[in-house]
Amino acid sequence: MGIEGDNHLSKGASHEYIAALFIDVDEQNRGFGKMLLDHAKKDHSFLQLKVYQKNESAIRFYEKNGFLITADSVDPATSEKEYVMEWRQRMW
């Protein structure tokens, strides 16, 4: 399928955290990232992740897939500014 890297979910006290989602640059914009997110969404009602503020394409991708920016943060390992983004399952 051409996907490199993977989708890492770590369980928190009351929600799921996506630690990393990487798609090979040659395979981006082909729906693979959406497939990975949809797979995570089907088993969870809440997902959270962090993304560097300078990574505008990733921010747009997550927003397109229903994530909202909920907080600003700083990665302690790199001192990069980042956003906390969250997705909640709609209850209709």
Rank of each mutant, 00 (worst) to 15 (best):
V51N: 00
F22N: 13
F46E: 05
W92R: 15
E86W: 10
A77M: 06
E63F: 00
S79A: 09
Q53L: 03
S57C: 10
M85S: 07
D43T: 11
S10I: 13
L36F: 06
A19N: 15
K54D: 02
F46W: 12
N7A: 07
V25D: 11
A77K: 07
I23D: 14
E27C: 14
H8I: 15
E56G: 00
D24F: 08
G5N: 02
L37H: 04
K41W: 04
G2D: 08
M35T: 11
D75A: 01
Y17Q: 02
H44I: 02
F46Q: 10
G2W: 10
L49V: 03
K11L: 15
S57F: 09
A58R: 01
F32C: 13
I3D: 11
D6F: 11
I18R: 04
Q48S: 06
D75H: 04
G31M: 12
I23G: 11
F22T: 15
D6Q: 14
T70S: 04
N55E: 03
G66L: 11
G31V: 13
H39P: 03
H39D: 08
Y17N: 04
D26I: 12
G33F: 02
K11W: 10
H39V: 10
G5M: 01
Y62M: 00
Y83H: 00
S45T: 07
I18P: 06
E27G: 10
L21W: 02
